[in-house]
Amino acid sequence: MPEKGRELTFAQAIREALAEEMRRDPLVCIIGEDVAEAGTPFKVLSGLVEEFGKERVIDTPISEAGFTGLGVGAAMTGLHPVVDIMFGDFITLTMDQMVNQAAKVHYMSGGAWKVPMVMRTTLGATRRSAAQHSQSLHAWFSHVPGLKVVLPSTPYDAKGLLKTAIRDQNPVVFFEDKMMYKLKGPVPEEDYTIPFGVADVKREGEDITLVATSSMVQVALGAAAMLEESGVSAEVIDPRTTWPLDEKTLVESAKKTSRVIVLDEGYGRYGVTAELAAVIAEGAFYDLDAPVRRMGAMHVPIPFSPPLEDVTVATEQSVFEAARRLCGKS
């Protein structure tokens, strides 16, 4: 974790990572809908086209399958494209290109071809955007050998992980929580990267481990603060990448605290929480005092109406209560 100092928002950290990598490597380019003058609907890319020009910050037609496939081919033949998929829900349109093409090219060719490409997209509900603009579908890509999947939860992590993603020689999918773009946090001026497959202990604790990804990290930290006031010491661990996965850090924390809740905004059923809970159960079975508890999004299409949408995702309060129960406190 960085020292106190300069603060950036999550969006600024991403923009800075892209700008620095584009200065470092002229082969990096951005491809997507309304990425140039508009700088995306979330304004994450504002200013990049002014610095790097339309040759490298490239607006596309609304053709996700087409330009993702183009990104795969461009990556195989010398460029380092960062493909922008405006909402995570639209990755469904890119599935053949990512799953049957990008993920398999290296292996199928016996290591002859590489696909050094990044896909940036979003996840997260509670923006009142309804069922086709609110999903967290990162489990889909995490399921596929050949892809790497990144889930930053702070501005610091976002910048360091995105730089690693761009320098990686494989297809990497980078999910950003759209509700987090304005979150501020310390980001040092100097160049740094964060390796994939290294979990970060966001908070140390003794009684229970909260493993949380992306949007759920802030929820876990909020719940941990509430737990502390009620006499429960919670450790918060962020795996940061679902693949590669830092199994060791998760298992060690579980062994230390003996109780675990796994939090992720994707669907629980067949989801990231299922995989993480299984890893922990296998690795720490004899040290656990309770079954690993999973908290994912409720298994429903995300509803529009605020009172309905609000009950579909875990909150600080619901995590606090679940943790207290798991510790036998209520």
Binding site: A130, P301, F304, S305
Partner: peptide
Amino acid sequence: YCRGKGGSMH
């Protein structure tokens, strides 16, 4: 029309 589940776009 959609009991609040759809909103403006659905």
